[in-house]
Every structure is written in C-alpha cells, then in structure tokens.
Simulated assay, not measured.
Amino acid sequence: MTRIIEAVQLGHTGAPAQARELLTALWDEIGPAGDALHRCTLAHHLADLQDTLDAELRWDERALAAVSALTDERVKRHLPSLQVQAFLPSLYLNLADCHRRLGNPGPAREYLARAREHLAPLPDDPYGESIRAAVRDFVADDPTDRRRR
C-alpha cells in the first residue's frame, strides 16, 4: 500500500504519466489473483489516470470486480475504521460517471441507483459527505458534468 499511495500522490502533484506508469507496473506485479485491496485501490486510481474514457471504464470495472473479493477483515488490517461496503458508493459513482460521459445515460442511471443504495456505510466525515453530495447532485444525462470520486 505504501508504494501505491506514493504513486497516487505523484499523480496528484502533477506527474500523472509517471503515476500511471508506476501503478501499471504494480498492477502487473500483483497480478489478477493478488491482494484484493491492492487490486481495488490500484484500479480505482488508475482509472483516473487514463487518456480515454474506454480505458477509464475498464479500470473502474476492474476496481468493482476486485472489491467483490475484499473482506472487512482485510481492509481493517490496513485501516481499522474501513468497511468494504463504504467503497461501493464511490466505485458505482465512477462507473455512472464514465457511462454518462460515454453517452450511455441508461447504465449511468443504473450505477447511480446502486451508489444510492450503498450510502449508509459511508463515514460521517468530509469524505463521506463529498460522496453523498456527488451522488445527490449527479445528473445522468449530462455528459459534460464530471464528478469522479
């Protein structure tokens, strides 16, 4: 997780190509059967670093697939306050966002509905409120509105 976090920070500080390269190398190192927390985290952040919407969508789908293999026991070893269910609103919202920007309002609405169904486990903190606000304000039919979380 330390290496993942360091690479993600590179992306946030203006080196997205380098961050993408490092995260992709970590993804290759971990492999499809690697630790689900690492796969989910990597895919979630790699989606934000893609040059095309199709590639972004594929990484968002990988993040959602990885979360299905994740357990509360595993995430609590990383951070005791985490719950797997709290990952879902953001993952679904990102999928809704990709579909909206691809001009697919039907799937965008479906993923938005799933995000809404999973808001309860979000913490009462700035992160939780930012996800709730993004879900509340999401417009599935507006491809120009970009709200990734």
Rank of each mutant, 00 (worst) to 15 (best):
T2H: 12
T2L: 14
I4G: 11
A7P: 06
V8T: 02
Q9W: 04
Q9P: 04
G11Y: 05
H12S: 07
A19H: 03
R20I: 02
E21W: 08
L22R: 15
T24S: 14
W27P: 10
W27V: 15
W27N: 13
G31T: 03
P32C: 12
G34H: 00
D35M: 09
L37E: 05
H38G: 15
R39C: 11
T41W: 14
T41L: 15
L42E: 02
A43G: 11
L46F: 08
A47G: 14
Q50P: 03
T52V: 05
T52H: 08
D54R: 08
D54V: 01
L57C: 10
D60C: 15
L64V: 13
A65Q: 12
V67W: 05
A69F: 09
L70C: 05
L70A: 08
E73Y: 03
V75C: 10
H78A: 15
P80D: 07
S81I: 14
S81E: 08
Q83N: 13
L88W: 06
L91C: 05
L91T: 05
D97W: 02
D97G: 08
N104K: 11
P105I: 02
P105Q: 07
A108D: 00
R109K: 10
R114C: 10
A115T: 00
R116E: 13
E117Q: 14
H118R: 15
H118Y: 11
L122K: 00
L122Q: 06
D125V: 11
D125K: 09
Y127G: 08
S130D: 11
D137T: 03
D142T: 08
D145N: 01
R148G: 05
R149S: 06
R149Y: 02
